[in-house]
Computed example of a mutant assay.
Amino acid sequence: MIHEIDEGVRLLLTESGLTESGVDLVFDPPTREWAARRNAPTISVFLYDIKEDVERRRTGRLEEYDDTGRIVAYRTPPRWFDLTYLVTAWTNRPQDEHRLLSEVLRCLARTDVLPARLHTGTLLQLGLAVPIEVAGGAQQGRSAGDVWSALGGELKAAIDLKVLAPLAGEPIDAAPPVTEGLRVRVAPTAGDTSADPGRRLRYDGTDDPGPHGFAGPRDRPEPTRRHRGPVR
């Protein structure tokens, strides 16, 4: 799921035209060594925090159907995770970095959810909305100062991008449909070698169970109405 969110964010920023002027878009951690090797204007989208939104956790299971409407599998509900990115711009001049950050902020601020056309893999299969929060208020978890200290670099202007992403549940195969009616056989007594063919309950004498098998609905005669006299 994480790599699918990466791809969606990359496509979103690419559609805005940021990379058309020779700007590189990478997901590398902006360490001191990385910054020294950089040789072109660059936007770094660094994933630095992953936390589950436990309030969205659900129990139970979801049903999956084939084209005929038959249940083919079950799946546990998706679990939701906050993916937080540190978005920074890197050039030789602070003014150019701020210009790039302004373009990134313009692109992200007008998007409340990751567009469905940018969903791939399991995101596309789930068909759920993926909310985006840009430069929000107080973030739970690591602060920007902690991130920069861990990276070994100096604090600089950055945009916090938080994406709420669903992780698809685990699939569970469904049992095959019922194709035969319930049959009762009598256990043979000692010395009895005859094979008891058994008796099919409810559907005795039915050769064609129909498209739904023996589990489908059956036409039954209306029950006989009983007349009840006055209670004395």
Rank of each mutant, 00 (worst) to 15 (best):
M1I: 13
M1H: 11
M1R: 10
I2F: 07
I2Y: 11
G8T: 10
V9L: 10
T14E: 03
L18K: 03
L18Y: 03
L18R: 06
S21L: 13
V23F: 04
D24F: 01
L25P: 03
F27C: 05
T31M: 02
R32Q: 14
E33P: 06
R37M: 14
R38H: 06
R38I: 15
A40L: 12
S44K: 05
F46L: 03
E52K: 02
V54D: 11
E55T: 13
R57F: 09
R57E: 14
R57A: 12
T59V: 14
L62H: 10
L62R: 06
E63Q: 09
E64V: 14
D66I: 00
G69W: 08
R70S: 01
R70C: 07
R70E: 06
I71L: 08
T76S: 12
F81V: 02
D82M: 11
L83R: 02
T84Q: 05
Y85L: 06
Y85R: 14
T91N: 03
R93V: 09
Q95A: 15
D96W: 06
H98L: 14
L100E: 05
S102Y: 11
E103I: 08
E103N: 15
L105W: 08
C107F: 12
A109C: 00
R110D: 15
T111P: 02
A116Q: 10
A116L: 04
L118D: 08
H119D: 02
T120M: 01
T120D: 03
L123T: 06
L123W: 00
L124Q: 11
Q125A: 13
Q125N: 08
L126Q: 09
L128S: 00
L128C: 00
A129C: 05
V130K: 04
I132W: 09
G137Y: 06
A138C: 10
A138S: 15
Q139I: 08
Q139L: 06
Q140K: 14
Q140D: 12
R142N: 05
S143T: 06
G145I: 00
D146I: 07
V147L: 03
S149W: 02
A150P: 01
L151N: 07
G153L: 13
G153S: 15
E154G: 09
E154S: 14
E154V: 10
K156Y: 10
L164I: 14
A168L: 14
P171H: 15
A174W: 00
A174V: 04
P176C: 08
P177M: 07
T179D: 05
E180D: 01
G181T: 04
R183M: 02
V184P: 03
V186N: 05
A187E: 01
T189W: 09
T189S: 05
A190G: 14
G191R: 04
R202K: 04
R202H: 12
Y203S: 13
G210M: 11
P211S: 01
G213E: 00
F214V: 13
G216R: 11
R218S: 13
R220N: 10
P223M: 09
T224K: 15
P230D: 13
P230G: 13
V231E: 15
